[in-house]
């Protein structure tokens, strides 16, 4: 599904003393199958933005199109939109509520009105793709470990079979191994299901490693939108917004400033290793 935002604006509490412009003139186009990263400090408008992507919030100005169709049209099927665009919110394990893991994951398919058999099938598939063993189907989700709970919660969204998957800080609060596992899992699901993924993250390293394109939110506006190289080349501007670039990028910049290397725009560990070991081997 392609997503188009055209001059989207959102004002909270219009006409009250709390009035706040949360989105200002946001325009972009996301093609089918892209892997997008959204960065921005707390309160920059990231979560307001993703809530517009599946119609949980309605824009107060501008238009949003999915596959060319305006979602604010009266005839537009908003229920299907929510099914097609899945959102995994921050700390999704806090939304688990059913008595068993299986029932919780089946909540979404059930709401779609699918026959039981099909809903069960989707539940199995979703749990399998997040790496939760069948033996946990009848266990209470509240008895699982933190990392497992999060996987079950993500499975609950995957069971809707979304064409676009949006994740808000899916690795927050996990230990290094848990972090890596979750991110690897998301990258794998994207490859296997061939879906569009939007990853909201505070970690520049994660974004650099996984996504193709970065959108930077600042003060409700889309401040930057480009490839990873393009965005991380604008280090000063990012720092002004309270963001940063990956450590590796900073180091490679230092080395270049000292005339030790010629390359610019290196932002992942693997690339840096490749370039530096070549040089060191030459000696």
């Amino acid at each position: 599904m392609s997503i188009t935002f055209d001059k989207v604006e959102h004002v909270y509490g219009k006409g009250t003393s709390f009035e706040k412009m949360a989105l200002k003139n946001v325009s972009f186009h996301i093609r089918d199958g892209e892997f997008i990263g959204i960065i921005g400090h707390t309160g920059s408008g990231k979560s307001t933005l993703i809530q517009h992507m599946n119609g949980l919030l309605k824009c107060t100005g501008g238009n949003i199109y999915y596959d060319g169709k305006d979602i604010s049209d009266r005839e537009y099927d908003r229920k299907t939109l929510r099914q097609n665009v899945g959102i995994v919110f921050q700390y999704p394990e806090h939304q688990l509520f059913e008595a068993t893991v299986g029932k919780d994951v089946a909540f979404g398919p059930g709401n779609l009105g699918l026959p039981d058999l099909q809903a069960d099938l989707r539940t199995y598939e979703a749990l399998k793709s997040v790496g939760i063993d069948d033996s946990l189907l009848d266990v209470s989700p509240f008895d699982l470990s933190g990392g497992q709970k999060r996987r079950v919660a993500i499975a609950g969204v995957l069971a809707m079979k979304p064409k676009v998957l949006i994740l808000d800080e899916p690795a927050a609060g996990l230990d290094p191994v848990g972090r890596r596992d979750i991110l690897e899992m998301i990258a794998r699901i994207r490859r296997e299901e061939n879906i569009t993924v939007v990853l909201v993250s505070h970690s520049m390293e994660d974004v650099a490693e996984y996504v193709d394109r970065i959108m930077v939110m600042n003060d409700g506006a889309l401040a930057m939108d480009g490839t990873v190289e393009e965005v991380f080349a604008r280090k000063e501007e990012l720092e002004e917004m309270g963001l940063s670039v990956p450590q590796i990028t900073l180091l490679m910049q230092d080395l270049k400033d000292d005339g030790l290397i010629d390359e610019t725009g290196i932002y992942t560990m693997d690339e840096a290793v490749r370039i530096l070991s070549q040089r060191l081997l030459k000696r």
Partner: peptide, 13 residues
Amino acid sequence: DKIMKAQQARGAD
């Protein structure tokens, strides 16, 4: 509000 939105995203009505 957050929980309602999360469940709405899973098709709750």
